[in-house]
Simulated scan of single mutants.
Amino acid sequence: MTAWLLDPEVLHLNHGSFGATPAAVLDAQNSIRERIEANPTRFFLEGEYQEALDEARRAVAQFVGADEGGTVFVTNATAGVNSVLRSLEPALLPGDEILVTDHEYNACANAAVVSASRASAVVTTAQVPFPLEHQRDVVDAVLAAVTDRTRILLIDAVTSATGLVLPVVELAAELEPDVQVLVDAAHAPGMIDFDVAQSGASYVTANCHKWMCSAKGAAFLWVRPDRRDGLYPAVISHGYNGGWPSEGGHLHAQFDWTGTHDPSAWLTVPHALAAVEAMHPGGWPGVKAAIREMCLGGRDVLIEALGIAPPAPADMIGAIASVPLPPADNSGSAIFDPLMAALRERHGIEVPVFTWPAPPDRVLRISAHLYNRPSDYDRLAEALAAELR
């Protein structure tokens, strides 16, 4: 793990939550910060910032199949979701519906609830089964929940707790343009093949600090050309009245400057893409194939150890995968099961155990990245056997 700063005394199987940043990328971030601090006025006001930002944007857009004009940086995917929902609130009428699934990331589901309440709209929930047998189970569940009042579908490209790659392209094809599809693709870029412009969605937001391995605090939002004019950041700033001129059009003017902050995480994205690409002889295609193969192998180890059937087909798995655990009396934990702490404290393993969908049910989610090895999952299976007996 010399390319990473991860503690070698801990088995890290939770890349999915916060990512991990290669040491070389952190070195690049430090250099960027030194450049900023050498003369902040010059950097921000004399064009250095905008030039560096445009370069980073270009790298992101090329990596995810987006156009630069529709791509802006945000601090995380949750900020991207909030920006879209806040922008759409004025168009919602009382009784209109924002549809989510019961696998939706809690923070973004909360954003939907608040935006709906401001417009006297409602949030409805599609019940997607887990375990499940086919991607069509997701499509059927979501479409069954759509009504003539559904205006927005907020859906994950890869679910957080359950680790499922969802058929967002199929759903967008069924629903757009009557229902605006907002894809929370927090995990997708760098984990699976995911082309933003080909998704068919109105909006896609995703993190760069997870599978793309940038410094933390970097994410992007892409907006389809026909949806751009009315889209604003959650924080309104100088660009609203032209106070931050940008040659990149409406979105860039609104999002490129929302106040003084440390943009170094955004500017590390090209460094991260290059650093991870160099870690595998097959480049990024090789990285994605390798970590998916390792994840599927790790899932097989856990399935055998737990004596359960695969909870989802292999074509719905990227580099995170969840397995159901035996129910437990975990009613005192709102999100994380106490088993998570036991695995950390007694076995030195960082892996999330979620209370999902509600106590006493729970799932354990593994991740795989290039710093992991197949033997990591054997060690986890042994620890689980000791804790569950």
Rank of each mutant, 00 (worst) to 15 (best):
P189M: 05
P324T: 06
T75V: 14
P281V: 04
V146Y: 12
D67I: 11
R346M: 11
T150I: 04
S199E: 05
P313Q: 10
L99C: 01
A265W: 14
L302W: 11
S331P: 02
E48R: 04
A201Y: 02
V64Q: 01
A383W: 06
R118N: 08
Y105M: 07
V81K: 06
P22K: 02
L306F: 10
L364P: 13
V142G: 14
I335V: 15
D329I: 01
A312N: 13
H271D: 11
V84A: 02
E9C: 03
G348F: 07
D378Y: 12
A119F: 02
S322H: 13
V363K: 05
C213N: 12
S237T: 07
A79N: 09
P131C: 05
R58S: 13
S117D: 08
K216W: 03
A111T: 06
E247C: 00
L364Q: 02
C295R: 02
A341N: 01
E46S: 10
E170I: 00
G249S: 10
C108V: 10
E97S: 04
A59I: 10
A28S: 04
H280W: 04
A157W: 03
A272H: 08
G65K: 10
C295D: 06
L85R: 04
S202N: 08
G348Q: 04
V60E: 02
W4T: 07
L88V: 11
C208S: 10
P263A: 10
G200C: 02
L339I: 07
D256K: 00
R151F: 03
L166F: 05
E176D: 07
S331F: 08
I349Q: 06
D378E: 15
V139C: 01
N207F: 04
K216M: 12
G282M: 09
A197G: 10
W266E: 03
I155Y: 01
L164R: 06
R344P: 13
V363D: 02
L251I: 13
E304R: 13
V353N: 01
P313M: 15
N39M: 11
Y49S: 02
N106C: 12
H15M: 14
D102P: 09
P311V: 07
C108N: 14
P311I: 07
M191G: 00
G259S: 07
A342W: 01
I192F: 00
E387K: 03
F255E: 02
A383M: 01
G243M: 10
I308S: 08
L175K: 01
A145K: 01
A111I: 09
Q127E: 13
N241D: 15
R227D: 13
A309R: 13
N14T: 07
F336G: 07
P338D: 11
T78F: 08
H12M: 06
T355L: 04
I32D: 06
F255L: 09
D96K: 08
V165I: 12
N372Y: 12
P90T: 12
W4E: 01
K216N: 14
A172Y: 13
E97D: 06
G298W: 15
A334M: 05
D7N: 15
I291Y: 11
E387M: 09
T21N: 00
A77D: 14
L231V: 12
D137S: 15
V181D: 01
A342K: 08
S120T: 15
A278F: 12
L143P: 09
E247K: 05
A66P: 07
N330L: 03
V183L: 11
G332A: 12
P357S: 02
A24Y: 12
E247W: 03
A272C: 08
L132N: 09
A278K: 11
Y371S: 11
V25C: 07
R224E: 14
P359T: 12
